[in-house]
Each structure stands twice: as C-alpha cells, then as structure tokens.
Design a protein around this nucleic acid. Structure first.
Lengths: 212, 212
DNA sequence: TAGATTGTTAATCGATTAACAATC
DNA sequence: TAGATTGTTAATCGATTAACAATC
C-alpha cells in the first residue's frame, strides 16, 4: 500500500490552497512559492510543502510552483476533476440556501434534487429544481447516479433521512442537523454544526475576557 | 496561570456533549456514565473524561455524572450561561437562513441585526428583523452591545465587511465566505467553508474507491 | 557560480489512548 | 465488602516545525 495515512487537517488545507490558487490564477499570477501560499492562506511554508509532499513533487527547487499546474494537481487529489451529483433533503431556509449556494457549483458540485415531506412545498421549485417527496429519493438517486446527500432537516428527522439515503445507495452524507447520526461503515459522513462554531467563539471570548 | 492550553477538539466535543446532555435531560434521563456519553456521541470514555478533566471534577466515582448538573457545567465552560448578541451581514439566501436558524436561539444566540447594501433589500425584514445598510453597522453594534458578527456575503466583499466589523468593536467573527480574511489579533475569527466540507467527502470517496 | 526554494528527514510538540489507583 | 466508574498519570500515537541536503 503506497498511500500512508493523510491527516484530515492536510485535506482541509489542500482545499483552501486550491481555492487560493484558483483566485491567483484568475488574476493572472503564474508562479508562486510555498512561502507565498502560506502567507496567502495563513500557514507556514514548511506545512504547505509537507501537505503537498504526501501526494508527490509538484514544484521546482529554487523556483517554486506553477500556479495553474499545482492547482490542477490539488483538484485531482481532492477528486474534483469530475462532476459530483448532490441532493439536498430539507427545503427549509437552510436547504434552500444550500441549493442556491454558488460556492458548490464553482467547485463542481451539481444539485440534482431537493426533497421535503411538507406537501405545501412538494411540487414547488428552488433554483429551478423541483421539490420531491422523500419517498422518491431512492428512485431519483439511482436514476441520476447521485453521489452525495446533504441533510438539512430539523434534528429529530435527521436519522430517518440518513437511513433513507443509506438505503438509496448514496456514498457520502454531509449532515447539517445538530444531532449525532449513525450510518453504515461504508458511507462517508461529515457533520457541520453551525451552533458549535459559534460556541467555539464564545468559549474563546470567555477565556480571553480578562486579558485586556 | 492555571488554565493550561485546551485543545480546540476538546471544545468542539464539549459542545457536542452539551447538546447530547440537553437532549437526554429533556427525555428525563438523570444520570449517565462517561461510557454512555461516548456511545451517544461517537467517542471513547477516556476521551470524555479527559475533556472534562481540563475543567474540574464533575462526576462521582463509581456512579457517573448527573446529567443536568454536568450540562450546566459545560454550558458555563462554553460561556453559554448568558445571551450573546449576533448580527449577520448579507441578507441573501445564506444570511436569511442563518437569521432564521433555530439552533442559534436554542443555545442562547440572539440575532439583533441584519445588514445588506442591496437597496432593494434594505427596509425589508427577515424574521421580523429589519435589514439595514452596512453604514449603520457600527451604530447598531454599539447601541445594542453586539458581541459576534456573521459574514454571509460573497467572497469579494468579505474583507470589507470584516473591516467594518472590526471597526465597530465587535469581538468575534464567524465567516462563511470562502476566502481568507484578516482581522486584528484581538478579534476572534472562525471560518466555516461549506464547499471544503464537501471536498473532504470527495477526497475520501476517491481514496476508498477501490476498497470494495 | 550564487541565490533561492523545494522535498524530506529528524526533532519537537501536542493530542489520544490505555491503565489503574482512588473512591463512591 | 464487591462492583462500578471516575480522575489522572504514563505510554502511545500523530501532526507540526525546524533544519538542511538536493537542485534549479
């Protein structure tokens, strides 16, 4: 086995490097050093080089990296050199916002379905995509070869939605419901808890309160 | 100095424990062991105890923890034993969704203002909160003693918004714009990048693709 | 060649896990 | 007292940083 264990922190940073390189490329910057990348994203040069070294040699000693070239490598590493089909369950405020979120399309994620069990919503459309009832989920996932499901329903419904997704053959889930859900081991699961992020801020505010 | 360095991972987990304990408390569960907490949130008993040990002794040997009591301790550790005032800049889909997000209010976060520079939006209201122009930000922050600002504008505007927030005296920023922003060192900053979360999933999908 | 910057190894630092004495 | 479970220390594991040889 040639792939050693890659820290998740490395993947997060690669994603950020890629976004930054895309930005630079658009501006017409063609070459960059690890130090400049580090400065741009708030890291250290050694860390940038270490992160890249897990995957290969993408630079030229004494020179640096070609922006476009390095970005293409990272995009490929992250698996973004193809389209990914995504469905969103929950057509409330958050689900609707995610459906229309520009940042997804830019990175190759295509929203191919929205689901909700509220009969007042079924049949309506968000961003041109019709809202379907959840009992159509499996059919739509399989017909469209959907890869990823996003859970944007209230916490009490999240596990049921996860079960339906697992049953449909979806391969990965991004869960926005603030609750721990369990899925089969072969299904990738990631949680984004919006309140937790605010709570980390309040913890730090309390911690540094005296340090004036 | 008595507070040693607390891992951020510990704070994230404490936040999750607290949410889980709140749930159990509502169900009427009064006592719990570190093993049961671990099972409930997907961790290990040793880790639960270690996380808590940074802050004190909250359990009883041979018995476990009182659910309500432990939760109150964690809530206090996270700084949630008071109300936090929050503003959101960007009244687009994401900003509107965050304004109405139930999970914030449940944890003591109060949205006290929404801002946008789109004149078609200024004067309208989201969830009963009027949308104000960004040049009113400082005034409203100071009049209402706002603690935290959420950035929900497109990437190109994020730094300007961060500057306005810094200038207003806000103490912490949660940034949803997919761009690196810089703020004065005394300002707490946290980034939530929605696309990055999907990219971690696609990386893992690619990594395990062969392992059928 | 001299200067610059990579790729990589070794040293350090930090977080997690295991083990167990304390104690209810 | 016997069984259970905490709090805490020591051992392990993993990630970051520093240093430098390789090389453009």
């Amino acid at each position: 086995m040639k792939t050693l264990k890659i820290p998740e922190a490395t993947i997060i940073r690669l994603s950020v490097y890629s976004r930054y390189l895309t930005q630079l490329d658009k501006k017409g910057v063609s070459s960059i050093s690890s130090g400049e990348i580090a400065e741009g994203v708030g890291g250290s040069p050694a860390q940038v080089r270490k992160d890249l070294a897990y995957f290969g040699e993408f630079g030229t000693r004494g020179v640096g990296y070609n922006v476009k070239d390095l970005n293409q490598h990272i995009v490929r590493i992250l698996g973004l050199n193809r389209n990914w089909k995504v469905i969103i369950v929950g057509a409330g405020n958050l689900g609707s916002a995610l459906t229309q979120y520009k940042g997804f399309k830019e990175r190759g994620f295509e929203i191919t379905g929205i689901f909700d069990n509220d009969l007042n919503k079924v049949g309506l459309a968000v961003n041109g995509i019709p809202i379907s009832p959840i009992n159509k989920l499996k059919e739509i996932v399989q017909d469209n070869k959907v890869d990823i499901g996003i859970i944007a329903v209230p916490a009490p419904y999240a596990q049921d939605v996860a079960d339906a997704m697992a049953e449909s053959g979806i391969k990965a889930i991004l869960n926005f419901a603030p609750v721990v859900i369990s899925v089969p081991p072969d299904l990738e699961l990631r949680n984004v808890d919006l309140a937790v992020n605010l709570e980390i801020l309040t913890f730090n505010l309390e911690l540094h309160k005296d340090k004036n």
